[in-house]
């Protein structure tokens, strides 16, 4: 009986979580014509890629997708390049300033994106970076960096320093010890940090919209054309933005708990 009630609750919540995703998928795969019907059918009657292809062929959508991808990948690389060594230092060394540094990281996480974006737009205008994917990459890296440092630190803590010392005793240089011993063990965790960074960048709208004019990322493109685009376009846009999320979470599932468990302590 108790088990049954439990399942009822779980199924109810699952329906609430899944229904919108189902509906947006349904809408995205309906023809323009059937979207104008009323009432809308709740099951696919006439599946069509018309709406989606219309969305994809709108100006700026493909380019926005490419920009989003570029920005996301560049952000991942840059954030790891800068964040990994810092995470390693936090994990391995008891140095003066370690505590303040971690506080600084936490503080930066509390800064709203909008506070940075407006002045950054001005700064980038004067430095010629405005309206480039680099500008967005820099902003996203700054946003992702604190989390990257905290996650990678947690990952490195899990590899005992004695293993690195052992490698050095047996003839490895510090760099070799890191590459051969620490990296292979840290890789899954680092991959999780990378995916996390990518998701953050892929989803970020406001900063990207403020820092660019023509080089929009996909969400920025959708946002800026929102008020004068037809419903079909918006549904297709919503669908396009949701699909990667399903993938990301599937990849990340194992690490979600670890990540939020460790980064917040």
């Amino acid at each position: 009986m108790r088990r049954f009630a439990l399942q009822v609750f779980c199924v109810a919540i699952s329906l609430f979580m899944a229904a919108p995703i189902y509906l947006i998928t349904l809408a995205a795969f309906s023809s323009r014509e059937s979207l104008n019907e009323f009432p809308l059918p709740l099951v696919p009657t006439d599946p069509s890629t018309e709406t989606l292809s219309g969305f994809l062929s709108s100006t700026g959508v493909i380019a926005g997708g490419v920009n989003s991808l570029m920005v996301g990948l560049n952000t991942v690389v840059l954030a790891l390049l800068i964040g990994l060594p810092a995470g390693y230092a936090v994990a391995r060394y008891a140095f003066r300033g370690r505590q303040p540094y971690q506080l600084f990281l936490l503080l930066t996480r509390a800064l709203p994106i909008v506070v940075l974006s407006v002045p950054l737009a001005r700064i980038f205008l004067t430095t010629g970076l405005y309206d480039t994917t680099y500008a967005v990459t820099l902003l996203h890296t700054a946003l992702a960096l604190p989390t990257t440092v905290l996650i990678t630190a947690a990952v490195f803590v899990a590899v005992s320093p004695e293993q690195e010392e052992a490698a050095q005793i047996f003839g490895a240089s510090p760099v070799q010890a890191f590459v051969r011993i620490v990296m292979p063990q840290a890789l899954p965790g680092i991959a999780a940090a990378a995916v996390f960074t990518f998701v953050m960048s892929w989803n970020e709208v406001l900063g990207a919209a403020i820092l660019t004019l023509n080089q929009r990322t996909l969400p920025a493109q959708v946002l800026s054309t929102l008020s004068f685009s037809p419903l079909a376009y918006r549904f297709a846009g919503g669908f396009a933005l949701v699909v990667p999320a399903l993938l990301f979470i599937a990849i990340m599932r194992k690490y979600l708990l670890n990540m939020w468990g460790t980064t917040l302590k």
Binding site: E162, Q163, E165, A166, Q168, I169, F170, G171
Partner: peptide, 17 residues
């Protein structure tokens, strides 16, 4: 440095990879 001393060591925690 450790690698140039040509010593060998067994760690208390094993430290096997």
């Amino acid at each position: 440095s450790a690698r140039d001393r040509r010593v060998s060591m067994v760690f208390q925690s094993y430290a096997i990879f």
